[in-house]
Computed example of a mutant assay.
Amino acid sequence: MSNDGQELLDLTVEPWADMHRIPPKGTCIVVTHAPAGDGTWGLPSHRDAPFEIEYRPDSVTVWVNGHCFHLSDKEGNPIDEGVYGGGCPAQTRPPQ
């Protein structure tokens, strides 16, 4: 999601209540992974959708239907790497 406004845009990722702020002209990409081997997303009413999104003028809430999430900018660089709900396996990096 992109912030086309002039003020910070609050981003809440649920069900972890993880808060982030998207700066003006900034973009934040939310990625999640399905926990089930059959590729479903877990919630009976949204089994084919990885997210539910609620938009408000000064904030957006993303309900992640997967078992974890991670955030990146539009170039794919991690945002706040290592603080994501459930320890997202896509964010686990081998020791350097």
Rank of each mutant, 00 (worst) to 15 (best):
I29T: 03
T12Q: 11
W63Y: 14
D80I: 06
V83S: 12
G82T: 10
L8F: 13
N3C: 07
P89V: 08
S72V: 08
P35Y: 06
D18Q: 15
S45N: 10
T92F: 14
V31L: 06
A17S: 15
D4M: 01
Q96F: 11
F69V: 00
P23A: 14
V60Y: 06
P35N: 07
I79L: 12
E14W: 15
G39I: 09
V83Q: 13
H70Q: 07
I29R: 04
R56I: 00
V30A: 04
V31R: 05
H67I: 02
I29E: 02
E75V: 00
E7M: 10
T40R: 06
P57I: 02
V83C: 05
G5T: 12
T61Q: 13
E75Y: 04
T32C: 05
C88G: 05
W63Q: 12
G5I: 12
A36T: 01
P89H: 15
A36V: 00
G66I: 05
P95S: 11
S59G: 14
P50W: 03
G42I: 01
I53A: 11
W16H: 05
E7R: 15
D10W: 13
R21C: 04
C68P: 04
I53C: 08
T61N: 08
C88I: 09
G66K: 00
E75H: 10
N65W: 02
N3H: 07
S2H: 09
P35D: 10
P50H: 02
G86T: 07
R93A: 11
D18C: 09
A36N: 08
K25Y: 09
W41I: 04
N77L: 12
R93Y: 02
S45T: 12
G37V: 08
G86E: 07
E52L: 12
P23F: 02
P24T: 08
G85V: 06
E54R: 14
H20K: 11
P57S: 09
V13N: 04
G86W: 03
P35E: 12
Q96P: 03
P57T: 09
A49H: 09
E14I: 04
A49Y: 00
H70K: 07
Q6F: 01
F69Q: 01
K74G: 08
